[in-house]
Design a protein around this nucleic acid. Sequence first.
DNA 1: TGTAAAGCGTTACTTTATAACATGTCAATT
DNA 2: AATTGACATGTTATAAAGTAACGCTTTACA
Lengths: 170, 170
Amino acid sequence: MPDPDHPVAFAPHDHTRCAGHAMARAEAALALQGVRLTPVRRRTLQILLESHRALGAYDVLERLASDGYGNQPPVAYRALDFLEEQGLVHRIRRLNAFTACMHPGEVHAPAFLICRGCHAVAEAPAAAVGQALEAAAQALHFTIERSNIEALGLCPACAGTTEPMVRGLV
Amino acid sequence: MPDPDHPVAFAPHDHTRCAGHAMARAEAALALQGVRLTPVRRRTLQILLESHRALGAYDVLERLASDGYGNQPPVAYRALDFLEEQGLVHRIRRLNAFTACMHPGEVHAPAFLICRGCHAVAEAPAAAVGQALEAAAQALHFTIERSNIEALGLCPACAGTTEPMVRGLV
DNA sequence: TGTAAAGCGTTACTTTATAACATGTCAATT
DNA sequence: AATTGACATGTTATAAAGTAACGCTTTACA
């Protein structure tokens, strides 16, 4: 039973609702922290919420600039870094890119599944992965502070076709 | 019971033996594949084997250049990319850097533990992590081709001191 | 020994990211 | 309402990381 507020990136869903829900949760999370969702930050988050893909800082910057915000790299990096610190955006290291968090405000240990066909990025629930990683670290008496777990491969749609389904997927 | 051929990066060990073993295994693995360990490639691997740290491509390049090899970025990237394809070097995406594989020729699903104190990088056995990740992907019908699992934190030595123990650790 | 493939060195360039500083905005206090 | 101090934004400039493309050299092997 799919939860309309937490759809999987790879599966068709009401994306307007999906993005709206994420934005609402993000606003709530920021208010709770007593930090400000300024226009640049809000717009940055909106841009990332438009699709289940990861965007490079310069892609975001281009969008921001065309909306009348500053057009120098720090403008984008500052907004992205802020949102990442607040847990509203995840950095996909493999892609040097950023993607909106689909579970803002919730405790979660995400693993990212990156489709090399359509470039969709799904945030998979990965509590078990996190626990296994924690166990592996403990065996070496290592204290984990932050971690990134990413997998590259093919989403269900792209695995089934010769040509990847780049178009149409939010 | 510590295995002298597979020491943990964080623990003191006979590093000459550790590196020598890794180089020998690497040579065997390459011979098996019928590919060539040219002087630049060999030297690149040696450089990475000198310490349990990750080096940026430009750090490696500097070393190669001072040894009389070419001093342009592609020289380092080609050697590093080759070694990574052959499974002799791992790329640490969080650091934009490369580290020598400690288990060349063996099937292994490594997780990398990166100490932010001394910058040591340990390759933790993580079969369970890999399995959990595979399970999380299967739940979304995603096919994993490659993955990277990295954790940032403190190694046992650095966790126990105010000042990180940067010096002396191989 | 000719030749095709692989490797190396170089030039030039693109992409990604940050340091540093000036300007502007906001909200809490006098 | 004016002051102030912290936070946020815009800008210049530069650093760091990574790649495309070309020509020469070496190697494997027919």
